[in-house]
Design a protein around this nucleic acid. Structure first.
Length: 151
DNA sequence: GCCAACGTTGGC
DNA sequence: GCCAACGTTGGC
């Protein structure tokens, strides 16, 4: 049984269209411990909702899957880079990432408003006030409902 | 652009 | 180890 996750991104930084085009990408740049820990828990074949945030209509755009389990986030080693963190070294990496691959684009993106409007999704992390994690777990029943809303 | 919420940092 | 200050996130 795969587990389910949600990957949040600002589309101008990295969009679902880009994943569709590239096929796969390292989910680099996560600098939050809880989000990192979630990635460490991921296993090959786990599935994720790909979510666009910080835009007029935030929405889950489609599905991706984990194709490489957690390994050190090399962007933390890149001096001068946007994601450089001197506390993380190749010998003792602090930050991890997984690789995700494009699986499916939703016929209808499931907007944040649409999810909020569905009473069955009331406990979903994404909808909780102040919950900002960029990598979140998604419960199987929530996954099923979001897919249903995307049809 | 505002601002609530929350994680992180650092002084003590 | 507490907690105030600070920075970031992200919906609106």
């Amino acid at each position: 049984m795969p587990r389910y996750w949600l990957f949040k991104t600002e589309p101008h930084a990295f969009s679902f269209e880009r994943l569709k085009k590239d096929g796969t990408t390292p989910w680099s740049g996560v600098r939050n411990f809880q989000a990192r820990n979630n990635m460490v828990e991921m296993r090959l074949g786990d599935l994720g909702l790909f979510y666009h945030s910080s835009i007029a209509e935030p929405a889950a755009m489609g599905i991706c899957k984990v194709v490489k389990e957690a390994y050190p986030d090399f962007t933390a080693f890149e001096k001068g880079g946007e994601y450089y963190d001197p506390r993380s070294t190749p010998g003792k990496p602090m930050w991890q990432m997984v690789d995700v691959a494009f699986v499916e684009e939703f016929a209808h993106p499931v907007t944040l408003a649409r999810m909020r409007a569905d009473p069955r999704l009331v406990g979903m992390d994404l909808l909780k006030k102040g919950y900002r994690l960029s990598v979140q777990p998604v419960m199987p029943h929530e996954w099923k409902i979001v897919l249903e809303l995307s049809k």
